[in-house]
Design a protein around this nucleic acid. Structure first.
Lengths: 233, 233
DNA sequence: ATATAACTATGTTTAAAAACACAAATATAA
DNA sequence: TTATATTTGTGTTTTTAAACATAGTTATAT
């Protein structure tokens, strides 16, 4: 499931967001308690029902956070890319995990004990604000997604997802190809539709010259129109 | 839009959650800066695009938080009842409001300047944890709702909403009538369906003897079955 | 290298929910 | 009170997307 490692990675440069608000003592303590894990493609990082123990920071790779829904139909809540934190919400809510996380690609994850983090942020207002801000942004995104995913039609939902992926992962050197390669099924689970509909709608977008596809590579050709399709729903 | 008032209400007994984690100095300062506002039924408390300035605590009445969606179709994100806090997420995310709040019933709201709250929680770990925990719980709820509202069918969605309302607002002396009276339209906007479908499905539930309705009063008769309907979607 | 599994693609059918239309009941305001 | 607006209720039609079916393609593993 995962390999182990320590000390090779420079935490101060990888955990920048947290590192810069910590005192020297806190940094020392954190360094002593940090673990680095490696996950292979499709490895499960945590799953629904487990007890959250660590704050996770993704150093390398891509991670999907998803929930099992009706009839074991999965819904992807969000996708994490480096360097971002995940896995802490359930701990703070004093709940078991209600979602699962798995590696899209080979991943390097840094685990920091939540007990330690909580202990720090009780004394460290900047660290507290850091989490408050992350949670606040994520809650805003979640509220937005509910409306998009429930009210927009298939075309609007898929268009929004493509734009969101472009925004989150950026584009390759050509300035147009989205920097993440998802299976059609993942695209569907992220956009609240069946795989067939994702495939079909993607084909339509190609025919309408809004995008071009080459396997799992998606190139956005006419962003204006895609934005319009996303907006009108 | 709203009346003003001060000092008549005992903040210490109304703001309990926050009050108990504050120092005497903080309490004093907060008391000096707290404002009490009264809202009439259907009054707007804040709206999308405005700049968040205050933490709001609902002392009396009921408030709905909602977003304008596709084709000005509203989606109710959550409903607030006393004594709960709202209006702080956008401030922490450094965004304008992306939702609106309005009074379902005549409301009494206590406004506390967010600047002051932020200043406090930077020093006060317990206060910070209080917000972190609220945000974490709300984010969990939001993630759950996305899946329910997108994957469950109309019957399952409405059943879930009824159960949720019962859980949040409790029941009247008869032990079965839900303690909040919503228009069918609000019920629909909270359950992601059209008003017609809310009305129709409600009628079906009545015919199936799961609930009884008397105007806007909803009495849950067979909770077991309602739970089952909610679960199977 | 070949077999097997997983993914992509597309056409057809079926089911769900929205849209529409209208009537009745209730609430609100002049 | 009466007039007007809003809300509730129900039937019908249309649209949307899911479900199903099947084939071609690409990965993966042995």
């Amino acid at each position: 499931m995962a390999g182990k490692n320590r000390g090779i990675i420079d935490l101060s440069s990888s955990l920048t967001d947290i590192w810069r608000v910590l005192s020297d003592v806190e940094r020392e303590k954190l360094r002593d308690n940090a673990r680095i894990l490696h996950f292979k493609k499709n490895d499960l990082i945590y799953t629904e029902g487990e007890t959250p123990k660590d704050l996770m920071c993704l150093f390398k790779g891509k991670v999907k956070i998803y929930k099992r829904g009706v009839g074991s139909r999965n819904h992807i809540i969000r996708i994490i890319c480096p360097v971002h934190y995940f896995g802490y919400r359930a701990y703070f809510a004093r709940e078991p995990y209600v979602s699962s996380a798995s590696a899209f690609e080979p991943c390097t994850v840094c685990l920091l004990p939540m007990e330690l983090i909580e202990q720090f942020l009780r004394k460290n207002g900047n660290l507290a604000l850091f989490f408050i801000q992350m949670l606040s942004v994520d809650l805003g995104v979640a509220d937005h997604r509910v409306v998009s995913l429930t009210q927009k039609h298939v075309r609007g939902r898929l268009a929004e997802t493509l734009l969101l992926l472009k925004e989150s992962y950026g584009v390759e050197e050509d300035g147009a190809t989205i920097n993440i390669y998802l299976a059609r099924e993942d695209l569907a689970n992220f956009s609240n539709m069946t795989t067939s509909n994702a495939i079909r709608t993607l084909s339509n977008f190609v025919n309408e010259r809004m995008i071009a596809i080459d396997g799992r590579k998606i190139k956005i050709i006419d962003e204006e129109r895609l934005i319009k399709v996303s907006r009108i729903g």
